[in-house]
Nucleic acid binder design. Sequence first.
DNA 1: GCGATGTAATTAACATGTTAAATTATTTGG
DNA 2: CCAAATAATTTAACATGTTAATTACATCGC
Lengths: 158, 158
Amino acid sequence: MSPKASWTAPTAVRRLDRSLAFKLLQARELVMQRFRPHLRQYDLTEQQWRVLRALAEFGPREMRDLSERCCILPPSLSRTVPMLEARGLVARQTVDSDQRRIEVSLTDDGRTLFNIAAGESERIYAEMGDALGKDTLAATLELLDTVITRLGTGKADG
Amino acid sequence: MSPKASWTAPTAVRRLDRSLAFKLLQARELVMQRFRPHLRQYDLTEQQWRVLRALAEFGPREMRDLSERCCILPPSLSRTVPMLEARGLVARQTVDSDQRRIEVSLTDDGRTLFNIAAGESERIYAEMGDALGKDTLAATLELLDTVITRLGTGKADG
DNA sequence: GCGATGTAATTAACATGTTAAATTATTTGG
DNA sequence: CCAAATAATTTAACATGTTAATTACATCGC
């Protein structure tokens, strides 16, 4: 059709817009576009917010545990947590029974910031729920749970 | 319950495991865990793979267009594309009618690598389909489309 | 024509993602 | 009790994410 390009159409390849990984990326990006300005207001990245949130919800946690709960790999967390500590939002303390382990906890300032930001976060989440429709949101959360469970147990052997 | 911590339970905050953004992240991470070893084999990051894939599917594209199709912000793409160019996988050429624009295209080597990697990629995707179940995979893709459509048009006004 | 405005792409600066390697502390086996 | 194996964390190195600023080109309006 186009005379300028020597480009040949793809043969038997799944289209990009059918890729599960890509759709998950697109969807997450759209969700985060709604939250990022809010977090930015408190000078927090989304990862930093996940750390604060996990600590607020589960209480003091060791690095490894925090890493899994936040979906942040240990090397990243080893850079993020000291930053939050420098800002006085979290505290670090080595565990007595095992000097390798480090327990991270929310400081009073951290909890205060969390409580403030969490309020508005809920409001944004509600707006998103309106845009999506309650049923769609609920169905999506449930389906994602299924996906996470089924892919998580398999542990990828290929 | 625990005597050691002065930690108080969260009050009226949505739980982390109910966050749509977080679930999308978790799900995507599990999907990518299956693909990353494969891409690594060809010394490709997932972003680099998205670029090759988009070029293979849509033909030569300008940076801005490529950015949107790959879900990679322009600043990142401005670093990624020259790397692929240095490896001889893509070519860059300024557009005659507008010297600001740069058209990126797949080279023969790029297409060859894409074709090779795409084959195994399909195999991994099929495995994942088995782990998820065809129905679940199809339903998830469809629901994600709905989410993407509804969140995409809104353009976030909060 | 020419300056003001707008646009495509890049650069800059800092935080995170990803893999490998190094550090330090614990545990295991002899 | 000590050397080897393990484990938790960190560091290193490079690529990407994110926002702001810059550069280079194009277009509009006079």
